[in-house]
Design a protein around this nucleic acid. Structure first.
Length: 643
RNA sequence: GGAGGCGUGGUGUAGCUGGCCUAACAUACGUGCCUGUCACGCACGAGACCGUGGGUUCAAAUCCCAUCGCCUCCGCCA
């Protein structure tokens, strides 16, 4: 092009702020400004790119899409045109249609085109077996540039190698990539499958308020100041819990909602401040009813979305059993290495630490790590350090190798005791036994975490397994480590187990409080909590009693939950339900490690959105409307330049 | 709130036991050539002062301090 000389000056750069994507010289001096943009005019898309097949050969088609790649061979130009269905090759040569060819010469990556052309067989030997449309190509008759594009700051390729911050800033480009489109589709199809299933089962989808009142317990609320009533705040709903219970009182009978929930807590790979729940509630519920329904639902989703069947019913495990066997309330059952109680095998041991722990009500627990008896000194030290960060005071190792045993405490143990441990933890020759002596909770939690870490590291976790299970009979209350106060383990509306009801009715001691079990259940898959629910309390007297045990005065209870208690006075049916983390579910189905990849516009781990730059400051006028004044953020203590 | 990792042309990385770095490689981008490419090829070219601020030093991308951002984990998430 004649103007190419002038475009070389790299003019643009100086105007572009650092860190911004620069316009390529051609984009600026040349095509980007000069490109003659066409109108769709009377053109209508006749099919999608990825769906062209040999059966369409000879047909004239009109395709619309983005230029994925262009291969310019001089008098022959190939372009891969992309839409959400995939790619198809468009060919333009100087001989066939010189108009189309002239346009093709000016086209660049990510330009938006309308292509009219004939579907043709590829020339002999030029079929691309790696492409769904690899047997055909489009002989371009007309090419219209519907829009030009700057050189994108990320590659629109399947393999994402870009920094995630950049991907989030240009999310609309990141989402052009096929794997991301696939994730969005899986998300959509999962939601559709759930809607269909529940709808057919007689559940009504009902919307509940996002702006509601702050709940005192649980996660931190996102607050929304009221302009009309200055000094007062709404809270963004953490879950529709109370509303769905009220809907049961209303006689809705079966409710569900695919709903955004908000929690102002720190983020993780699988935690976002706003996330989507599948919230379900039904009247006259029993555990069996809920579990059966959920099993049917999950089965349906797996078939609809993944084309795979699941075996139901799912195995069940009580909380107590899950803790003692796996050291977790969400055990990953894809591999063994279960925790064993070696207390009685070592009860007579002369090792002082064991004696002390046992005497003070503690326990000795162990796992056998397969084939790891030959672990190096350093590996053992690392494991011990890991155990300590998880809360253990130490870690005892027993290496069973070639019929011999290597252990720092070998001299304190008899052969009988060593054999006893080996048989209780079901260790084979060549295994490394890890033993923690501590209070029950600490011992199993530490070993549970080591079990997970080692299972991962040793490749014992098979990626293609989906191991579902129900964890049941959770404790109703748990103690807050910091304050010592009793809190609801799930939420305060969870019904106690009938057999533990007498403990609720009386004035239980702390020990008894800790023993009260709840009609609560979690659906766990591969070590991830997928759903959580319970049979609720539906009677005022019982609800008030539970509030009291949680340390809520009658006054406070009425202030915060009066509307619920009142509702219970008017014929509340027994009811219960469950809530799924939809994004987590989709993440697991898609085989991903982070929930961000299945959410179109997620937040970074500090809660910001690089695309919109939210959160952002409010201007004075907004603050004035809300009668809010900001307090200066004070920097840390007096500058201790002591170093 | 705490711990760890990362931050170098548009992108992905190397360099980071200080001087051979007036920063390398790949890719993308631009120009030219090429009628069967499909990660097209070939040639030429433009492009970063190394997140930011301060310090140490004759000398810093490289060491130290602070700070910002991203990621992971712990706490937290009824």
């Amino acid at each position: 092009m004649a103007s190419s000389e002038n475009t070389k000056n790299g003019v643009v750069q100086e105007a572009v702020p650092k860190g911004a994507v620069s316009d390529g010289p051609a984009n600026v001096g040349g095509y980007f400004c000069e490109a003659v943009l066409d109108d769709m005019g009377d053109l209508q898309r006749t099919m999608y790119c990825g769906e062209v097949r040999p059966l369409h050969i000879g047909h004239e088609v009109t395709l619309m899409g983005w230029v994925n790649r262009r291969r310019d061979l001089g008098d022959l130009i190939f372009m891969d045109l992309r839409d959400r269905t995939g790619l198809v090759q468009v060919v333009s040569d100087s001989g066939r249609s010189s108009d189309a060819f002239r346009v093709a010469e000016t086209v660049r990556s990510e330009y938006v085109l309308a292509v009219v052309g004939t579907v043709a067989h590829r020339v002999d030997g030029q079929v691309n077996p790696d492409m769904a449309t690899g047997a055909v190509e489009i002989l371009a008759k007309e090419i219209r540039i519907l829009n030009s594009a700057k050189t994108p700051p990320l590659y629109i390729r399947d393999e994402a190698e870009a920094d995630e911050l950049l991907r989030l800033k240009y999310r609309y480009l990141d989402l052009r990539r096929a794997p991301m489109q696939r994730n969005l589709e899986i998300h959509h199809r999962t939601a559709m499958s759930i809607r269909n299933f529940l709808s057919l089962e007689g559940y009504w989808e009902i919307e509940t308020p996002m702006m509601t009142r702050s709940t005192p317990e649980g996660a931190r609320d996102f607050l929304v100041p009221s302009r009309v009533d200055p000094g007062k705040f709404y809270a963004l709903a953490q879950s529709p819990q109370l509303f769905k219970q009220l809907l049961m009182v209303s006689g809705v009978d079966k409710y569900f909602q695919i709903v955004k929930c908000f929690r102002d807590e720190d983020l993780r790979a699988d935690r976002q401040p706003e996330f989507t729940q599948v919230d379900i509630e039904l009247s006259f519920a029993t555990e069996e009813l809920v579990w059966g329904m959920v099993e049917g639902l999950v089965k349906r989703v797996w078939i609809d979305v993944l084309g795979k069947d699941l075996e139901t019913p799912f195995p069940r495990l009580t909380y107590a059993e899950a803790m003692s066997r796996f050291g977790s309330d969400k055990p990953d059952t894809r591999f063994g290495m279960e925790i064993a109680d070696v207390s009685s095998a070592l009860s007579g041991s002369s090792f002082g630490v064991f004696q002390n722990v046992l005497a003070s009500g503690g326990t000795l627990r162990a796992i056998a790590v397969p084939g790891q008896a030959g672990m190096s000194r350093q590996e053992i030290d690392n494991l011990t350090a890991r155990a300590k960060t998880h809360g253990a005071k130490g870690l005892v190792t027993l290496a069973y190798l070639h019929g011999d045993i290597k252990s720092p405490i070998k001299k304190y143990l008899t052969q009988e005791e060593l054999d006893g441990v080996k048989s209780v933890v079901r260790a084979q020759d060549g295994d490394m036994v890890l033993l923690v002596a501590d209070a029950f909770d600490t011992a199993v939690t530490v070993l549970g975490r080591l079990r997970l870490e080692l299972g991962q590291r040793l490749g014992l976790v098979s990626k293609d397994k989906f191991n579902f299970l129900w964890v049941t009979e959770f404790p109703l209350f748990k103690r807050n480590e910091d304050t010592g106060a009793w809190e609801a383990a799930h939420h305060p509306f969870t019904s106690p187990l009938a057999s533990d009801l007498d403990k609720v009715k009386s004035s239980p001691s702390d020990e008894e409080k800790g023993q009260i079990r709840a009609r609560m259940y979690d659906l766990v898959m591969n070590g991830v909590e997928l759903a959580s629910g319970s049979i609720r309390i539906h009677r005022r007297d019982l609800q008030e009693r539970v509030f009291r045990l949680l340390g809520l005065s009658q006054e406070e209870a009425r202030l915060k939950f009066g509307f619920l208690l009142d509702a219970f006075d008017y014929g509340a049916p027994p009811h219960g339900g469950i809530a799924f983390g939809l994004d987590r579910l989709v993440m697991l189905m898609a085989g991903l490690d982070t929930i961000r990849d299945v959410i179109a516009f997620p937040k970074t781990s500090s809660g910001s959105c690089p695309l919109t730059e939210a959160p952002a400051a409010a201007d004075d006028r907004q603050l004035a409307d809300l009668r809010l004044r900001l307090v200066e953020k004070h920097k840390g203590g007096p500058g201790g330049a002591g170093k």
